[in-house]
Design a protein around this nucleic acid. Structure first.
Lengths: 209, 209
DNA sequence: CTACCATGTCACTGACCGGTGACAATGGGT
DNA sequence: ACCCATTGTCACCGGTCAGTGACATGGTAG
């Protein structure tokens, strides 16, 4: 019952080995969570000696830094599909896309779920940096996509958006962990559809049709 | 640099020892999180031998069961202050009380934060049971307090409420972990006040004034 | 060919973990 | 006074962890 390895045997290829270590760390995190992310486990999975982690990354911390950059790059890549729909016509539509897009992207991304769970369970400077990078990427996307759309002046949009994003994140995490949240089943697709509808309604109620 | 102990030396007092074990497990969880909740650590903190955990609870699992009941009792106790304000006059007011009350209660309750982080990071039958108990307690409070207030028929209240509760929970957890969320600082009280306002607005927008 | 350095492997340490069996102390019932 | 179950303590086991020093291997520059 050993996890499958992502990397083929390399030979005297430092860059390749280092990349394999990062790759396997990533996979291990996605599959088993941050608890399993130890020096021994990563080296074992990558099929090389843990000594190399110390040599090439200066220890687990260094490897996690590299992993962090890798993940940060994933975030912006994940946001790209949202632009395929063209420019939104209203602030409400903008937020609707963001919220629903985030919901879908997060649901599909076990790795990101693990990272977010990690951030919550065991804060650390590295993790906090990752969170920062994520919300920054979200902010950038907002700025670019928003154009000159503005929310109604009487609402505190950053705060309201934080509520929306937090709800999406928490529900996805709780759903992945327990298959339900607050009495809502979150297994079949139509459970999620109900949620999407509620999200839309909330956004419309906040920002107008 | 050892954690302070909650319990004084006991002598041949099985019930007292067992209670001290539960109590110290609780404190340990609140202070250091679920990662630190091991047989050795609990026994050390309680000032007795780990063997007693096996004898009295059949192992860590059994102790955690007892801990779970303890925590479940806390939940309903935490909900009580919400009733001090008398009956709400509208469904919106009901949900406003629930959301803001939950926000405050969670912010003040490190233990509950730890439990929720645990649930998300490392799902297990016990933890899922705890979650169930919590949402059940919330539901009971709702039923009792609601009276015959009803949400507007066109909104999916359970789904919308799930969004509200999820947002509250996630923001509290993220705030405790990183001191901010989605670009909002969550340190000083006025940061939180902004959030409360946004929550109120969202609820009013959903359920009417 | 040789010497050297980068790469990779191995064996070991010390610490901590959960778990278990044997033993010591206490106090109540007879 | 004695017995004995209950309560509590201790020492030890096997396993895993992070971390380190020594060693094998292979490519390459001289």
């Amino acid at each position: 019952m050993t996890a499958s390895k992502d990397s083929v045997p390399r030979q005297r290829d430092r860059a390749g080995t280092a990349a394999a270590l990062v790759e396997n760390a990533k996979a291990l995190l996605a599959e088993q969570g941050f608890q399993a992310l130890g020096i021994n486990a990563i080296a074992r999975r990558a099929g090389c000696d843990k000594q190399l982690i110390y040599r090439y990354f200066g220890g687990l911390e260094g490897l996690l830094d590299a992993l962090g950059e890798d993940i940060a790059a994933d975030v912006t890549r994940r946001l790209a599909p949202l632009d395929a729909l063209g420019k939104p016509q209203s602030y409400a539509e903008l937020m609707e896309r963001l919220a629903l897009g985030l919901l879908q992207a997060l649901r599909d991304d076990r790795l990101m779920q693990r990272v977010m769970a990690w951030e919550i369970a065991e804060p650390s400077p590295l993790l906090t940096r990752l969170t920062l990078a994520r919300s920054k990427a979200l902010g950038m996307w907002m700025m670019q996509t928003r154009g000159n759309l503005t929310p109604p002046p009487e609402v505190d949009a950053p705060a309201c958006n934080a509520i929306l994003v937090a709800a999406v994140q928490h529900i996805v995490l709780a759903g992945a962990a327990a298959g339900q949240f607050s009495g809502l089943a979150l297994r079949a697709d139509d459970d999620w559809e109900r949620l999407r509808k509620a999200l839309k309604r909330t956004i419309r109620a906040l920002y107008g049709a």
